[in-house]
Every structure is written in C-alpha cells, then in structure tokens.
Design a binder for these strands. Sequence first.
DNA 1: CATGAATGAGACTTCATTCAT
DNA 2: GATGAATGAAGTCTCATTCAT
Lengths: 213, 213, 213, 213
Amino acid sequence: MSPRVVDRDQRKREIALAALELFAQNGFEATSISEIAQAAGISKGSIYLYFNSKEDLIFHAVAMWVDQMMEQTGSEAPSDLPPPQRLRSLVHAMVEIFVSDERSVRIAAAIFQLFVTNPRMLEHRDLARELFQDARKAIIDILLDGVAQGIFRPGTAQEAEGIAINLLAYLDGIGLHYYMSRSYFDLMDQVDLYLDHLLRNLTDLSRRPGAQI
Amino acid sequence: MSPRVVDRDQRKREIALAALELFAQNGFEATSISEIAQAAGISKGSIYLYFNSKEDLIFHAVAMWVDQMMEQTGSEAPSDLPPPQRLRSLVHAMVEIFVSDERSVRIAAAIFQLFVTNPRMLEHRDLARELFQDARKAIIDILLDGVAQGIFRPGTAQEAEGIAINLLAYLDGIGLHYYMSRSYFDLMDQVDLYLDHLLRNLTDLSRRPGAQI
Amino acid sequence: MSPRVVDRDQRKREIALAALELFAQNGFEATSISEIAQAAGISKGSIYLYFNSKEDLIFHAVAMWVDQMMEQTGSEAPSDLPPPQRLRSLVHAMVEIFVSDERSVRIAAAIFQLFVTNPRMLEHRDLARELFQDARKAIIDILLDGVAQGIFRPGTAQEAEGIAINLLAYLDGIGLHYYMSRSYFDLMDQVDLYLDHLLRNLTDLSRRPGAQI
Amino acid sequence: MSPRVVDRDQRKREIALAALELFAQNGFEATSISEIAQAAGISKGSIYLYFNSKEDLIFHAVAMWVDQMMEQTGSEAPSDLPPPQRLRSLVHAMVEIFVSDERSVRIAAAIFQLFVTNPRMLEHRDLARELFQDARKAIIDILLDGVAQGIFRPGTAQEAEGIAINLLAYLDGIGLHYYMSRSYFDLMDQVDLYLDHLLRNLTDLSRRPGAQI
DNA sequence: CATGAATGAGACTTCATTCAT
DNA sequence: GATGAATGAAGTCTCATTCAT
C-alpha cells in the first residue's frame, strides 16, 4: 500500500536520536538544525521531509527519550528480592542512569524548561503524564507487593500512588541539585537517606495511617 | 558638574526585575535584550550601561531572585510554634510561592537548565550552592531545635543537613512535576505526604539511628 | 540529488571581488558586510555561507588581490630587452598600475594598516612575506641576468635581494606619498630618478663593492 | 578679552595626545571616543566641548603628531659633520624613531589610510604636504651644503628636491614593509644599502648629470 | 564648564525555513 | 526523495553623539 513506511519511521528515529544527543549536550534552543543534520548524516533540507518544524523534531525526540528511559529502568527490577530491597534496587538503577550519563539530567532539565515554559507544549500534557507512568507503576507494584507480603503496613496501599509520585519527583529534584552545584553532597548517600526514611515508615507496622503530625 | 542623578544600583535592579519577569515567561534564551529593554522602558543600548552582557544580566537577575525568595520565605517562619509545626509552616510557605506565582517554577526550571547546560555557569557554582544556603539553614535550625526540645530523636542532629538537602530537592522536583503536567495530582497533598513521612521518622523516639533497611 | 549547482570557489571569488572594490574605496573597517552583500547581489546571511567571518573575507580578498597583482605585473616583462631596460620596463608597469587604478594604492594602504595594526593578522605574516615574493624574484632575476651579461657589476649579485626589497618598499612609499597629497610632484619622474641612481650604481663597473661612504 | 584661551588649547592638546596614543595602538576606526575620554581623564561628553566630531579630533591629533615628528628629527642633525655623514646621521635618526617606537609606523599607516581613503581628508591636502616639508628641507640643506663644499657633484643641486622626496618615501615604504612582515630583513642594513647607493651617486664627481640609462 | 545617562543606528553573526534543481 | 544554496528576520553588542542637570 504505502511503500517503505518502515524506512521512513526508521529514518525519523535516526534523526531524533542524533538530535537527542545534541539536545543533551546543549539544550534545545542552543542546538541548531544544521548541527542535527550533520550529526544525522543528512542534509539540512531533508530534516524537513521528516519533521514539520524544529519544535516537531524536539517533541519527537523527547518522546523517544521517554520510551528509552522506560525500557532501561523497567528491565532493571529483579523480582526475586523482598520488596524493600527491590525498591532500593530500582531506585539505585534509576540514579545510576543519572550518575553514569550526565546527558539524562541535561535532557531532563531541558524537558522541564520546555514543558514549564513553552505554552505550545501544554497541548501535549498527556505526554508529560505518560512520561512517568511506567516508572510510577513499577514503584506501586513493589509497594503493593510488600503490603501483600505483610512487610509494608496496610495503609501503604492507599498511599502508594502518592509515594511513587513523591519518589520520582524527589529523584529528579536531587539529580538537578546535584548537577547544578556539582557534588557538594554525595548523591547516592542522599538517595539512601530518602529511602531509609521511606522504608522505615512503610515497615513500621504499629502505627495508624494518615495521622498528621 | 553633577549630571542627571540616577541611583545606579536601583536602575540595575529595575532592569533585572523587568528581565526576571520575561525570563519567567520565556526562559533565558528565548528572552531577547530588545524585549527586556522595552519592558524596562529603556533603550536597547542602555542595557549595556548597566550590564556587560546578556549573561551578566541573567546572572544578576538570578541572584536577585534568590535574594527575593530568601526574604519571602525567611520572614514567614513563626518561631513560637513547636518544631514540627514550624517545619510544616515553613515548607507550606515555600510551596505557597510555587502555587501563587507560577513564575517561580519557571525561573527555577530556567535556572536548572542554565546551570546544568551552560558550561560557563559552572564558574558560578558557588552561587548555585549559596542559592539554597539560607533555606537549608532555616530547615536545619528547626531540626536542631526539635532535638534540643526532645521532640525529634537525637539521631536527627547528624542527619540534619542531609534531610534539608533532600527536602529542598524534593520541593523543586515536585514543583516541576506539578507544573509540567498541570495538576493530575494535588500539590499540597503530596507535600503533606512527604512531611508526614519525614516527621513520623523524626518523632519516632524509639528507634536506633542509621539502621538501613 | 543534485541541487542548484554553483561553483563554490567561483562564488567566493565574486564576493571577494565585490568586497575588494569596497575595501579599496573605504578601507576594511569602514566597509560593512551589508554593503558587500549588496554589491555582490547577495543576501547578508549568504556571505557567511562562503566566509566564516569578516576577517576571513578580508583575508581572502587580500590574497586574491595579491594574486591579481602578480599576474598583472608578471606578464608585463618583455624578456628580449637588455637588463637595465627590462628593469625599467618592469617598474614602469608596476607604477602604471598605481597610476591607472587608484584602487591599488588604497588597498595597499588598507593592507598596511591591517597588518601593522591588527595583532591577529600577525599570524598571517607568511602571507605578508609572500605578498612581495614574486615581484622580488622578478627583480632579482633581472639583476642576476645583468651580472651574467657583464652589464651590472659583479657585486650586484650579493646585493640583489636587498636591492629588490628596497625597490619594492620605495614603490609603495612613493605611491602612498603621491596619493596622499595628490601630485605636488610627478610620480613617474620620481620613479625614474630612483631608477637612474640605481642603474648608475649597478653599471659602474669600476668601483669596489661594499665600501661604505 | 577671551579668558583662558591658553587653557583651552592646552586641554585640546592633552586630549589629542591621549588620542594619539590610542590611535597608534589600534588605528583610528578601532579607537572609540570612550577610550579616548578615559585615557584623557575626562568625560565622554566633554570631548565634544573641544572637538566637533571624532573626525575633527583625528585631524588635530594627526597635525599634532606631525609637529612632534618635526621637532624630534629636526633637532637631531649635528651640523659639524661632513655632508655625507650628516645625511646618514639624519636618516639614522629617523629610522631610529621607527625602530624604537612602533607607534610611529602604526600612526603612519593609519594616516596613509586616512588620507588615501577618506575623501573628506583631501580638503586638508595642504597638511599632507606640510607633513614632510621640514624633513624635506633638512635633507635638501645637507645636499646643497655638500654641493657647496664640492663633495657632492654639481648636478645634485637641481635633483635635490627629487632626491629628498624619494628618500622620505622610501623610508616610509621600508618601515611599513618591515613592520608588516616583522623582520625577514634587517631594517638598518636595508637603509644603509639605500644610502650607499645614493651617496655613491652623489659623490661620483666624474659623471654627467641627467643621463638616463 | 562638565558630566555621564541615554539613545538609536548600525555592526557582525546565526539560524529556521524555503525552493530550484 | 534529496540536496544545499539562499534568504531575511532576529540576536547580541558597540559607539558617536546629544542633553538634562
């Protein structure tokens, strides 16, 4: 029917991938179509055969990055450990990405700026929501599993989504703070401190849930 | 002998203020000197009488914003409350800024992008550190006060800085997540959840410190 | 596959040529990229498709001018004349360029100013040296030929390069003086006076070389 | 009548002097009024109390420089030497200025460019002529003296002005060439070669004048 | 007299986008 | 489908000059 559809999408991905690399290094605004074309081994004009505008390209690149992140972290959860260790393991894997590849924080920063700033991006709010969906789900699964196993206190179940949201927000926050003023604290230590407090709460079977202090 | 008298610092502040407004709307890169000049009711060339470059202007604007934030939140802490409530009150005040003035998150996003991306900003790493210094100190003070009053468990003292760092990182993270995908969760609820967990830990006088789970 | 075909080097030459014309009229600094673009019948931005900067353009334009000069004067030497006449003929040809085309002196003045003033041009000192190389060689050839034919005294051979250097420096100097205060002397008469003195020395077979007076 | 006329002229000289220094370093176009004002320890606006425009300032500065040069070289001629040595001594003194103070060549280059290029400067052609007048006269005096003493051949008298013109043009030319491609030849050696040839001609009492070769 | 704040034109340069080939 | 030459708007920054004080 439509010939070479696959090729076309493949090409889009290649370009978006090359673009992503550059976005990570310099941010969206500071990356020019010229550079992207060169990095993708394609002509400047051809970019526009695949994307309608720079914004469109940015959008696709971001979406692709989100997918990548999902796969990368999703696959890291070894399911044979007890829930607390599994949670810690998952979080460590996420942080490891930040630590091992500075790009990710840069892209994250660029994305935040993009979504928070650019009104046109608000139309894609759903993308933003999806962005963390898988990660959130992975965390919630572990939490519910812990409840089922009697390791986490029952109240955890209804707090699960909130906990996941907070955890992911925290991870982005600490990553940004860390890279902003390179290392006046130890990233992993801080993350462990967070996890310590969290897990202590979850495993404290004695207390009543929801009591505000 | 004495020409048109102008308070130079006052003028710098005015320009930086106008710039800040635009930075909050569009980010640093997307804001042009022209726009700033127009917003400040001044000619384009005059900007350079007060700032050596756009980067310089950004830098001053950011520093000014930091100072503003400090004053705003610093004054909000009613010191006659017991430490837990005081902490909650302080954090609420901080979040209130996010909620009441979208600008602040935008500026925060812009700053993160700037520092994480722009290599030249790394020279101002100290600024980045200072940025949170006062806030950190305010939190630590409350924590230590709580220990002194026997309300927080003793181990809190040595964890105080880590707790403060995490709290501030979390607040930025949750703010960014919140504005990125406008309100698929309630911001204040999430923050309260965070505080609940934190305070429960701190007020749990029975446990031994530092035991990792 | 093959888009609008343009001979890139040809285009560069066209632009440089248009620029040269303006440089000759106004000097390097006083000539704007806008003017060059207009003169070349091209858009301002397109200039930068061919040259990296204004300095680069100046550099190429100067190099092109040098080549032009070389060809123009190099072809003028009729080799069947006896050496003294050949030298006079060559020099006359050089002066003729000055006289017939005021541009050349202007460009020379601009080049001198550029090289003497702009520290960045010192990196291209080799260009400056090359600039006169061919002309120097042409003069030296005639001198050595004259020695071989027994018309110039033998000592001429070892002085040849110095004589060539002086002759070329003189020509530039007299050209500049001439155009600076338009014609309170006759250019060609002065040049002939210089040649008279020079040739009289070279053809004076009786004297010992190197005796300083 | 008109009070403080002296002060005013003195002030003009001070400013022009400061300007001259900068012109020598950077050329006319590249020197800003701001810099001149700062160097002169005066306010930018005040410059315009003394000069109508930048061009006016340039003009006065150049005129002042000419005067300076005159005084400097004029006083250097020790009149008790025999004419050939006196000529060499005078020329050496002139070259010494080039060698000891790079500024002079830079200013010379700037002046050449200015006069050759700027049409408005042509109105001051007389200044250009005057520029070399004293130097020319000093050279002619020596030549005529030499003729009177029977050391230079009689024909020298009628050639005297042409010789002076050529000598001065040569000196500028060799100075420019020298500074353009820093020292691929020895400046003083070249000048001496020029003088050798010149003096040999002048002291060759046997030959008939004006015979063209 | 003197100041220096203010201006606005214009400098160089970059870049997303278009279009003839 | 692919190219890359061309554009023109917009960006940052400089500077001679004016003018209220």
